[in-house]
Write a protein that binds this DNA or RNA. Structure first.
Lengths: 229, 229
DNA sequence: CACACCTCTCGAACGTTGATCCAGTCACTA
DNA sequence: TAGTGACTGGATCAACGTTCGAGAGGTGTG
């Protein structure tokens, strides 16, 4: 008998290969799984334990790769923004801005949890790259200084606000926020006459309102660039 | 000796007066204290236990007046919006809108937690009343149908986005988000040239950017009303 | 006076969470 | 063979939102 460290047969319990059989846990795998979990179950179902379970590890293992749960959220948030492709610069700044902002919005609607997470500083590289594109494009349009800042911020505020509003509408469906809202407006029709008259938006209405609203903003920016070139 | 129910002397333990000595716990008192707590310590320090402690009651008592913690947040959120006074309608719709939206923003900056809570459906009476005012004012300006919806939504998206962005900037100061951002931009100056060039906004810059951005939006709306009256 | 009833309070407790401690396991090097 | 550094996870902690059920106080009814 050779000297043994463990019980006989537990070779089969040991992990195989030069490394682990599955790709070893990494920050990247954690974040990717977090995004999947957030997409499937929403932001308040994301638990370190549940996340670890999906990854096939112990929950405490995650803390080797990540400092806190907030870090996971920050990383997940920045990750999804990579989906919003940065358009090539064409000659038409308004078209470029519209394309970028539209994709940005699409990403947030595809991952509704991302909209609700926007209350934290967004300093990830993907977010910054897209903000940089906005600034650069507006600069090419002839803006600079305070007007440039205002235009870039205005556009991003508009997208963020739009995504949050729409996501919060669609997020909760028990017993369908729409019904609740309808009942409120019906009950106090005299208090909110204009609101009640217009009813609540369908998905198409949201898209249309977004396009139009963005149009207002861009035409306002264009006006300011025209009058002081 | 008269017949006694309790032990001798425990009169002093009983509460005095026809009712409790302090005004009895009520939904209103709970919400008011919640707002105070949120203002002082921020959103993730709001605990049912801490809230109850400040009210001098047991934590479980709150659940008689309120169903869940989310209800407290919803109520607190709507409550602060009452601070944004609804302006009297003047002849100038743009001025009215500017006033309303400016006060709305001021409220959210005064209660930064409110900005981060915006990811939930806002159906409280105070929020609705202010949204109604926006709609009604724009209607008086000559808008109707889809353009009206787009304009009203656009304005509220802009305010919400602006407040969230600014609040998230000011919210965390450890070790001052500004420093972190500066370091990131300094490290990757070549990746974010336009961004780095403009630096990060002071409070005055935020105000200025808000005013200008709102100006773009309103002038865009005005343009659309002029060309199709 | 007794009894039932409604409103309101709260201690104990349950299950879950984010996070820490520390004892390990593994591959690699000297 | 011993040692090192990268990585894992079981036990554990304090805190949380919420439920349960036992009550206290006031009001009404006979």
């Amino acid at each position: 008998m050779s000297t043994r460290r463990g019980r006989a047969g537990d070779i089969w319990l040991k992990r195989t290969g030069g490394r682990r059989e599955a790709p070893p846990l990494s920050r990247g795998r954690i974040v990717a799984e977090a995004v999947a979990l957030l997409d499937e179950e929403g932001v308040d179902r994301l638990t370190m334990r549940r996340l670890a379970e999906r990854l096939g590890t112990g929950s405490t293992t995650l803390y080797w790769h990540v400092d806190t749960k907030d870090d996971v959220l920050d990383l997940a948030l920045d990750t999804v923004f990579a989906e919003a492709e940065v358009p090539d610069a064409s000659g038409d700044w308004a078209a470029d801005v519209t394309a970028m902002v539209g994709r940005w919005r699409a990403v947030m609607l595809r991952h509704p949890w991302s909209a609700t997470l926007m209350g934290r500083p967004m300093l990830g590289p993907n977010v910054l790259a897209r903000t940089e594109f906005l600034h650069a494009t507006l600069r090419r349009a002839g803006l600079a200084g305070a007007p440039l800042t205002a235009a870039a911020y205005g556009l991003s505020h508009f997208v963020v606000g739009a995504a949050i509003s729409q996501a919060s509408w669609r997020g909760s469906d028990e017993p369908s926020t729409r019904d609740v809202a309808d009942r409120i407006l019906a009950a106090d029709r005299d208090r909110y006459p204009t609101l009640a008259e217009h009813g609540h938006p369908s998905d198409n209405d949201w898209d249309d309102a977004f396009r139009r609203g963005l149009g207002y903003l861009i035409s306002g920016i264009r006006g300011s660039v025209a009058e002081a070139p």
